[in-house]
Each structure stands twice: as structure tokens, then as C-alpha cells.
Design a protein around this nucleic acid. Structure first.
Lengths: 222, 222
DNA sequence: CCAAAAGTGTTCTATGTACACCCATGC
DNA sequence: GCATGGGTGTACATAGAACACTTTTGG
């Protein structure tokens, strides 16, 4: 530390950006602000005994009832003036919920609601900026890690997986290349069951817990 | 926000992990703790008017006299118990200084010192963990962005650039492939001068300010 | 038998990797 | 003239991209 340690009291909070897939659309969990028809990212304060990540996890559990979610620190926002009510430092976490794992009543009790990412309501303060960054991070992570599985139920078909990728990346993917590469990667395994539907029944797969889910980035230089 | 907003007062500080190259070695700026022979990452508190990033920039300017440095938020550490003197939340930034741009006297005045990353002294609290993460981030960023130039002076030779990469990545690179790819990428341009030295004089290059310095990550799936 | 979604291979192109010798200068 | 670091090109292997038809089920 250079010179004296200066300690400043700040309002410190944890906020969460929670994504899930519903109706084949990427959705984010938002909370009404109350006063206007604006919405905000859910969050909470920090108890003495909490670490930052478990505060975020508790917040998500309170809203959804889910304990095991993909959770990762996103960024810390602390500009003075980002909140007109005074200086607030927000440590923001980023979470993914598996489709179909939600207890919707609890969300209703908290008055929080899922909103489609492609058609968002107005957000308070700098929360639009935070959400845009979370979305960039989600897309980016999808490129080099197997984070897409976090949005799917435990058991899924290859078409469902591909639609998830297309939904998040916002582009169409080639079915044959997608299947070949994901099977080559060895990160999913077929189950004995198939799922009947509209056409030919689809093979069900599940994510392999022992999979190595990260891929080396392409280097700019050798 | 779910239910009432809980506000907790915490000690909030900004810390910086500052890297530079000296004697062809990656170095990090550390500060003695005073009591034991342990060292720590430099840092400062947060003034009312500061945003987090400018607090980090001011801290680095105070130690080195440099205003324009590569600076990026690394992570926020806030576990209770990470500092035995009480709950401290540290927003940690990550900085790169160009080799040869340092005013060494100021560092001496603040009793901070450069320490080689390959042979570090003992660090206080969780600062080893923070430094290890910063190093991972540096290596990772090097893979997909042109962050390596931030550690070099404005003008450099291709061999110097290659040595920088080798130093950070910890592996040898092929000279011909390195040169071909970095020239193809179009992110550096030759200058009219050459630099005389021990053998044949080397062409000098500089980084092109208009360069696109990021490369698309390799996807896990198509 | 028809609609609807599942499943399947090959060719071509681009990228990455491995590798060894000559060149220009200072002493 | 020799020691020192600078500079150059080619052949091979791997990975990615483009592309269309057959299969299995339910109604």
C-alpha cells in the first residue's frame, strides 16, 4: 500500500444476472423497481459472514429455489453517479439455470419475472449496460467452453443443443458439422433412451461430468 | 432486489497487479508489509469522487509517475477471513507498463520494488493467489489479443517481441512462423530506422494504433 | 403415403507446424 | 575472417466449411 491506507465506507451490494432458456428463447430474471415501470437486476446486501459468491448464490436461491447453479463473477461497478441515490459499489455475478429446473411460484412471490433478452423492458441506472456485458460474456464463453450445457436439462437431444447454441450466438449452424464436432469432442454421451416427438425419435444424450470442457484459444501468434 | 435492501459497511480498497519487463524478465511491483519480511500488492482506498478504475490509475501514477498504462479490472476478492484484521473487499486491477518507461526513483521513495515473477518473495494474505490469477490472465490475454505490445517500448525489433512472448508464455516459438504470422496480421509496421547491435542490424517496428488487436476464439463447436 | 424431424460423408480450402540455411554487421 | 544475431520459404498435416439426401416415426 502506498502511504496510508484510506478506508471509505461505501454501499456494497451483490447483483446477479440470471439467464435461462424458456420457449427456446434466452431469458433474464428481472425485478420491478417499484416507482416507475423500470426493472432492475436482482441483488442483495452482504452479511458479515458471507463471501461474495455465496451472497449471490443465496440471492438466486431465494428467487428460484435452486441451489446448484452455474455462477461466476462478472464485474464490479463502482462509478460515483451510476446511482443517483449515492455511491453504490455492485459486485455483479453471472448465472445460468438449466431449462425446466425452475420453481416458478417463488419467482412470482418475489415479483421477479423472466424477460426475453431479445425484447427487454427499460432498466434502471446502469443495469442495461451490465446486462449487455453479461450477454457478451455468455456469447464469448460459449465459444471456448462448454457453458451451453448449463442452460439445458440433464438429458437433451442434439437438436436441442444446437438450437441453444444458435439462440445464444444468434446465427445458424450446420447440423452435420455441429454433430460431428461435438461427438468428436467427447463431452456428451448417448443414453439408452430415445425421445418420441413429431418426426423420427431422437437419441437422448447427457453431458459427461468428466469432460474437459475448455478448448485452447486460437493464438494471434504462434 | 428481493425483499429489503441490506446495506453493510465494508472496508473497500483497490489493489493493483502491475507487470513490466526488465532484463528480459517479467516483473511485478510489490510493496513491503513492514512488520514481517512479507510483501503485498500495492493499493489504495477509494475517495468519494473516484471511480474504481481511476483510483487504480492514480495508485499506479503515484508509484511510477506513469499516467497512460494498460489497465483492466481483474477480480473482486471479498471472502471474510481473507484478511485477519477484518473484512476487506479488494477490487483488483491488472496493469502493464511498457519496458523503459519507468521513473525508478519514485518507486524507491514509496519503498515499492520490482520482483521477478519467476522468483517471488512471500506475499501477505491471499495476495499470492491474486498474483497467480493475474498471471493466468496475462497469459490468456496474450493468446487472443495484442496485449504483448503493452510491455514493449513504442519501437522494438521482431526478436524483442518474440522474446516477450516467450517470456510470458514460458515456451519457445519458431522464428519464421512468428514473423510470418505477425506480419500477416498487419498489426505492426516497419520504421525507416534499423538498430545496430551485436550482429546484423535489426529492422525496427512499431505497433499500429489502428490495428484490430483481437482474434476470434476457436470455437468448441461450429 | 405424407409430413416432420433425425440422422449421415465427402470434398475442398485454409490454417498451423516443422524445419535449415544465408545475410549483414562489428570486432 | 569470424562471431553474432537478423532474416527468409517450402512441404506436410490438421482443422474448418460447404453441401443434399435417406431414415424413422406418427397421423
Amino acid at each position: 500500500m502506498s502511504g496510508a491506507l484510506m478506508i471509505t465506507l461505501s454501499d456494497l451490494e451483490v447483483r446477479v444476472v440470471v439467464f435461462t432458456l424458456q420457449n427456446n428463447q434466452l431469458q433474464v430474471l428481472l425485478h420491478p423497481t417499484g416507482s416507475t415501470d423500470q426493472w432492475m437486476l436482482p441483488g442483495c446486501g452482504l452479511l458479515e459472514s458471507d463471501n461474495l459468491e455465496s451472497a449471490a448464490a443465496d440471492c438466486i436461491e431465494g428467487l428460484t429455489g435452486l441451489k446448484e447453479v452455474f455462477l461466476e463473477q462478472l464485474y464490479t461497478y463502482g462509478d460515483p453517479g451510476r446511482n443517483p441515490q449515492g455511491r453504490v459499489v455492485s459486485v455483479v455475478y453471472f448465472a445460468l439455470l438449466a431449462a425446466g429446473s425452475l420453481s416458478l411460484e417463488r419467482i412470482g412471490q418475489a415479483r421477479a419475472a423472466w424477460q426475453p433478452v431479445c425484447d427487454l423492458p427499460a432498466l434502471a441506472w446502469d443495469h442495461s449496460e451490465i446486462l449487455a456485458y453479461a450477454l457478451r460474456r455468455l456469447r464469448y464463453k460459449l465459444e471456448y467452453s462448454a457453458v451451453g450445457f448449463e442452460l439445458l436439462p440433464e438429458v437433451f437431444t442434439l437438436s436441442e443443443l444446437q438450437h441453444t447454441y444458435e439462440q445464444i450466438l444468434g446465427e445458424q449452424l450446420d447440423k452435420r458439422n455441429f454433430r460431428r464436432r461435438i461427438l468428436q469432442a467427447g463431452i456428451i454421451e448417448p443414453m439408452t433412451e430415445r425421445r418420441s416427438g413429431d418426426g423420427r425419435p431422437a437419441q437422448l444424450y447427457r453431458y459427461r461430468a468428466d469432460a474437459v470442457a475448455e478448448v485452447k484459444a486460437r493464438r494471434l501468434f504462434p
